[in-house]
Amino acid sequence: MQKIDQYMHEFLSELNYEPILTMSSKLQGGKKLRSKLLLKIANENETSYKICAIIELIHAASLLHDDVIDEAKLRRGVKSINAEFGAKNAIMLGDILYSKAFYELSLLDLKLAKVISNAVVKLSIGELMDVNLSETFNTNKNAYLQMIYNKTAVLIEASARSGAILAGLDEDDFAEYGKNLGLAFQIVDDLLDIQGDEQTLGKPAMNDFKEGKTTLAYMYLYEKLNPQDQAILQGYYKKDLNESEVAWIKNKMHECQIFEQVHQELNVYANNALKAIEKYNIKDLEDIIKSMIERDF
């Protein structure tokens, strides 16, 4: 991962403007799932490192804009860029990261450029879908799944596809793996927001519901509640919840076995991902699925 960080730093240093380096130095590194995935498929070489650095710049840019939209104060346990430097600076830094990534992408293979740039278009559409779905209590599961595919899974899918292109493998098989991995990844994130704690998550627990994100667990719970309890759940939507209200939601989820239901769906995506690449027998990709599902942050 150090090689990828080095390329990212070089790309931004070329812009020769100190505030960019100051703010970007505060970005939290994260898991680099997309880079790890690409390198496991394509192996390590200078081209794959550069593609990883480009994808990480794009991912960082999307998180900067996401935090501004959500007015998030924390990112992985530390001050978000918008909280520390202001929303205007965060937006412009995101634009710079996107633009520099596209410039570097233009210097590489055209096919890879098409795959990644198309993913970024869908990613941006996913952000817009997320904003629109957050306006009301959403009970449309298909709309939610389409949104998380665009917002989260599509860049993971593009990373896997790019790795396959670099390695001369069947890109559709690995794209299918990446798509299902991405969907499962977001569903785990959504579960952790409910089941985790602030210290582990690096952000307030159950923050998604406060921000207007009705994830699978809330949708499934709503389906199983009686009309009176449905009204209570909707009354908690976008609200600063106190301890008793948080306990009410969690107790209802346990009573209705919501977590088990979500885990069943999660396992479907995980199995679909593994099935897509089973003929290649790449244990590292199997391990990525396992570690992603079993993570606690």
Rank of each mutant, 00 (worst) to 15 (best):
167 A>Q: 10
162 S>R: 04
142 N>R: 13
140 N>Q: 13
179 K>C: 02
183 L>T: 04
184 A>V: 09
175 A>T: 02
180 N>Q: 07
138 N>Q: 15
169 L>H: 01
143 A>H: 13
165 I>K: 01
159 S>A: 14
150 N>V: 01
145 L>W: 13
134 S>D: 12
146 Q>N: 15
172 D>V: 09
153 A>F: 01
154 V>G: 03
176 E>H: 14
157 E>C: 08
165 I>C: 04
175 A>N: 00
162 S>M: 03
149 Y>R: 15
183 L>V: 12
176 E>G: 11
139 T>F: 03
170 D>A: 11
155 L>Y: 06
143 A>Y: 12
134 S>Y: 12
167 A>K: 11
161 R>D: 00
160 A>S: 06
140 N>L: 08
174 F>D: 05
152 T>E: 02
169 L>V: 04
143 A>R: 14
153 A>V: 08
150 N>S: 11
134 S>C: 14
135 E>R: 15
161 R>W: 07
133 L>V: 08
172 D>H: 10
176 E>D: 15
182 G>M: 06
132 N>V: 12
179 K>T: 02
155 L>C: 07
141 K>G: 02
162 S>I: 01
129 M>I: 12
139 T>Y: 01
144 Y>P: 01
141 K>V: 09
161 R>V: 03
176 E>P: 06
137 F>W: 11
129 M>K: 15
171 E>D: 09
184 A>W: 03
144 Y>T: 00
145 L>G: 11
153 A>L: 08
162 S>N: 05
143 A>I: 08
136 T>L: 13
137 F>K: 11
136 T>S: 15
178 G>V: 00
129 M>L: 14
146 Q>A: 12
132 N>M: 15
140 N>P: 08
147 M>C: 12
143 A>S: 15
178 G>K: 02
161 R>H: 10
146 Q>V: 08
183 L>M: 14
